[in-house]
Computed example of a mutant assay.
Amino acid sequence: MTRPLLGITACNRPFGEESAQVVIDRYMEAAMRHADAAALLIPARPDLMSAREAATRIDGLLLTGSPSNVGPERYGDADGKGPFDPARDEMSLALIEVMIELGKPVFGICRGFQEINVAFGGTLDRALGDADRALSHHSPDGVPLDAMFAHSHDVNLARDGVLARAFGRDSLKVNSVHFQGVKRLGAGLSVEATAPDGVIEAVSASPGGTPVLAVQWHPEWQTDRDASSQGFFGIMGRTLRGEAFAAQQAKEGA
């Protein structure tokens, strides 16, 4: 049986004196293994291809995390802290619009979650990783990668939300590796999960019946070791195969 084809967004990164299109393997591997999907990497080069050219060829879209931040001008702010990737912003926001127009599902992780909020008219808070917060959403600077992703907290799942129905529970423990997050929620998005300090950690929507689901945490990190992370990609796989969010109740253990 032919597997669904998932488009995965790339980023522009320096590569010596050149530039490279980059997707960290863990995003691709987690989706291909646990959503049982084939993958097509979409370059962040809107100068060379349009979002529509990619969207018409894929069955769903995954907007990945990235070290870069969404440019503040995209949500009406005057300044912000980089690094930035304007071409990634342009391609991702256009892809979201076209995928929804075509009725094809959209998923987001970390930066992708923030892109979805901005695409729906929301704004971003850029101070969520500050050490003086009651709950810092990022580990201290300079720690190894394993320690960075070990930084975690619980999230409360919205009653009758997509995640709560899928997992059959009302909370999850998730990693927390982000400096930015939702400030004003985009119109049409529903809150799926919140941190103990009230920060929104997951959202969903169904504009025109198109499934949209995004999380601020990183389910692609060591997915094989975490049942709830596998469950996120399980939702993705079933959605790519045409199963509606509403029919996915209590199918995942955690």
Rank of each mutant, 00 (worst) to 15 (best):
M1W: 01
T2H: 03
T2V: 04
T2A: 09
P4M: 01
P4C: 01
I8W: 01
I8R: 03
A10D: 07
P14C: 13
F15M: 14
F15C: 14
G16C: 10
Q21S: 15
I24Q: 12
D25G: 14
E29M: 13
A30W: 03
R33A: 01
A39W: 06
P46S: 12
L48K: 15
L48S: 14
M49Y: 07
A51F: 01
E53P: 00
A54T: 04
A55E: 03
A55M: 03
T56H: 03
R57E: 10
R57N: 04
I58V: 15
L63V: 12
G65R: 11
S66K: 10
S66P: 03
P67W: 08
P67F: 05
S68F: 02
S68Y: 03
V70T: 14
E73C: 01
R74F: 05
E90K: 14
M91V: 06
M91L: 13
S92H: 08
S92P: 00
E97R: 15
E97Q: 15
M99N: 04
M99G: 02
K104F: 00
G108D: 09
Q114Y: 07
E115V: 01
I116E: 10
I116N: 12
I116C: 12
N117S: 12
N117I: 08
V118Y: 06
F120H: 00
G122I: 01
T123C: 08
A127Y: 08
A127F: 08
G129I: 09
D130Y: 10
A131I: 04
R133W: 07
R133G: 09
L135R: 13
S139Y: 07
D141A: 15
D146T: 12
D146E: 15
M148C: 10
F149G: 09
A150Y: 04
H151V: 00
S152Y: 02
H153Y: 06
H153S: 13
D154V: 12
D154I: 05
V155D: 01
V155E: 00
N156Y: 04
L157Y: 07
A158M: 09
L163P: 05
A166T: 05
F167R: 04
G168T: 04
R169D: 09
D170W: 03
V174I: 15
V174C: 11
V177M: 13
H178F: 06
F179E: 14
F179P: 00
Q180G: 01
G181T: 12
V182Q: 02
K183S: 14
L185Y: 08
G186W: 07
G186V: 08
A187Q: 15
V191G: 06
V191T: 15
E192P: 09
A195F: 06
A195R: 09
I200M: 12
I200C: 11
I200W: 05
E201C: 01
A202G: 11
V203T: 15
A205F: 05
S206F: 02
G208W: 08
G209E: 08
T210K: 06
T223Q: 07
T223F: 05
T223M: 08
S228L: 06
S228M: 06
Q230E: 11
G231W: 02
F232N: 10
I235D: 06
M236R: 12
M236T: 09
M236K: 11
M236A: 11
E243P: 00
A244Y: 00
A244D: 10
F245I: 00
F245N: 01
A247N: 05
A250H: 12
A250Q: 11
E252Q: 13
A254S: 15
A254T: 13
